[in-house]
Amino acid sequence: MILRHRIARIALIAALLLSSMPAVAESVLLTLTGAVTDGRVDLTRADFDAMDWHELATSTSVTDHQPEFRGVLMRDILARAGAEGSHVRATALNDYVVDIPIEDFHRFDVLAALYMDGVPLTPRDKGPVWIVYPRDDHSVLADIRYDMRWVWQLVALHVQ
């Protein structure tokens, strides 16, 4: 019984290690579907690294201080995926779904953040990707209608 458990645990750890080894570079962080190039674009960490990174310090509705976020611009992601449409339907790990007008990403420097205060965002927190609006730079953004679009644990964007 104990042995079986132990074997199972070792096998599990090995499997996790094996699968996570290439996953560091290969695992898909964000999937774009809908009106994008070939109907589906998978973005890995390497794809993110290939884009311009930006930093943004802003207050949020769920934290006290002004965290420093780091990531790429949402509009850059959509451009890279060849997105053509007016809305994206953002889906999070916890099945949170919200529609965001693409116009937002052109009016404001909306970030797809991968780091908060220098610490990588993980699914245990608000990762892998957190959509962050420059809330302190535009007073109109301090509103529940925009707060709803701060999708954390973002994994998929459907362009329509």
Partner: peptide, 14 residues
């Protein structure tokens, strides 16, 4: 992970 993130959220400031 998701459950952990919800509990983390409940422990944050506001």
């Amino acid at each position: 992970d998701v459950l952990l993130s919800r509990l983390t959220l409940l422990e944050e400031g506001p």
